[in-house]
């Protein structure tokens, strides 16, 4: 072998050497930044989150009302009107003037304040619903896909089983049942749960009901992802090196499979928000007077002929929020999966 090349170092120019490393996450983030709709949506969602978290502070600062403050004598105030409030109990008129930017409902409650407080319910349902579903679905799907064989078979038969559940009728029945609990004395551990639910304005059981029925699709997706990665050679390499199951799952599989799962959950958030809005719409969501956009829309529907703002204000908030989550989700999907951009 005369023309034998020594295995010499690959030579590189200075610039190439000092270039910063590009992580896959960083690439995705840069890609997302290019997507204007997604970035605007992200900003909007952040504003919503801040609003939801600071609603009480804004109330204490006197910018907005509490969600249940009733301005006496000003039922159905039109938007952009102000009224003198006589909320003092002692009969002495209080000279404080309150302006209803978006009007007030039949009880004289400021619509803007209630809409801001309503952000809490929608975001909580959206994030916790998707969070619970992501958690259960991922754990279930990863176990099923990773261990395979009989375990996988059994677990997937159970998922198939759940696929036959008609979501809406069953969730309605579940909510009817949970609602009946909140008025009853049940005692024991159940009482603790009922108390939690009451203190959360009826949201807790909503999370349970939504979470219990919505992780199935996520489990299938997670399993499929794990199946496609676990046969990859880098997993085999980790095994050859002596890595245990937990290390392989957490260090090698999860970081690779989680992207599409998060994208899919982001795109599912509007679904949870819809579900809550719909359940509140038929009176099976959060307990009044906790404001929820769905409940507000339903309440406003009766007077839509003369007071359309009662529907339009919470309706716009609901539509904009779901729009933002959809744009963000689409943007994330494109950023994570360059193939879909069609380049």
């Amino acid at each position: 072998m005369a023309t034998r090349e020594r295995a010499k170092p690959v030579t590189l120019d200075e610039e190439e050497l000092l270039r910063k490393p590009r992580s896959p996450m960083g690439d995705a983030w840069r890609q997302l930044q290019k997507n204007k709709a997604a970035m605007i949506s992200l900003a909007f969602i952040i504003v919503l989150i801040v609003m939801a978290l600071t609603a009480d502070l804004m109330h204490q600062a006197g910018w907005i009302d509490d969600y249940n403050t009733q301005h006496r004598g000003v039922g159905y105030a039109e938007p952009l009107t102000c009224a003198n409030d006589d909320k003092d109990e002692d009969g002495v008129p209080d000279p404080v003037q309150f302006c209803f930017v978006f009007g007030a409902d039949e009880l004289g409650r400021d619509l803007l304040s209630r809409t801001i407080y309503g952000t809490r319910v929608s975001l909580a349902v959206g994030f916790i619903g998707s969070g619970v579903s992501l958690l259960i679905g991922t754990v279930y799907g990863v176990i099923s896909g990773y261990y395979g064989g009989r375990i996988d078979n059994l677990m997937m038969r159970f998922v198939d089983f759940l696929y036959g559940i008609p979501f809406l009728p069953l969730i309605i029945l579940m909510q009817v049942y949970f609602k009946s609990l909140s008025n009853a004395e049940v005692g024991g551990l159940a009482q603790v749960l009922v108390d939690i639910d009451n203190s959360m304005g009826g949201m807790f059981f909503l999370f349970v009901a939504l979470g219990a029925l919505s992780w199935i699709g996520m489990a299938r997706l997670a399993r499929g992802q794990v199946l496609s990665y676990k046969e990859k050679e880098f997993v085999e390499a980790a095994r050859a090196v002596g890595a245990g199951d937990l290390r392989i799952i957490f260090i090698h599989l999860l970081p690779n499979v989680i992207g599409p799962l998060i994208v899919s959950e982001t795109l599912a958030i509007p679904g949870y928000i819809f579900s809550e809005a719909f359940l509140s719409f038929i009176g099976l969501g959060v307990n009044p007077p906790t404001p929820s956009w769905g409940a507000m829309i339903n309440a406003g529907r009766e007077g839509i002929r003369s007071k359309p703002y009662l529907v339009l204000v919470p309706g716009t908030a609901l539509a904009l929020t779901t729009l933002a989550f959809n744009f963000l989700g689409d943007g994330l999907r494109d950023a994570f999966d360059p193939r879909l951009r069609g380049e």
Binding site: P21, S23, P24, M25, K232, E233, F234, E236, A237, A238, A240, V241, G242, A243, R247, I251, H252, P255, N256
Partner: peptide, 28 residues
């Protein structure tokens, strides 16, 4: 140890080269 056929599938895309090569040292 083992060296694999597919140089694209045999390295975890989410790990830096340092972590990939360091993994055996870390595990043991």
């Amino acid at each position: 140890q083992m060296i694999f056929q597919d140089p694209y599938a045999s390295l975890n895309p989410r790990m830096t080269v340092g972590r990939i090569i360091g993994e055996p040292l870390e595990v043991h």
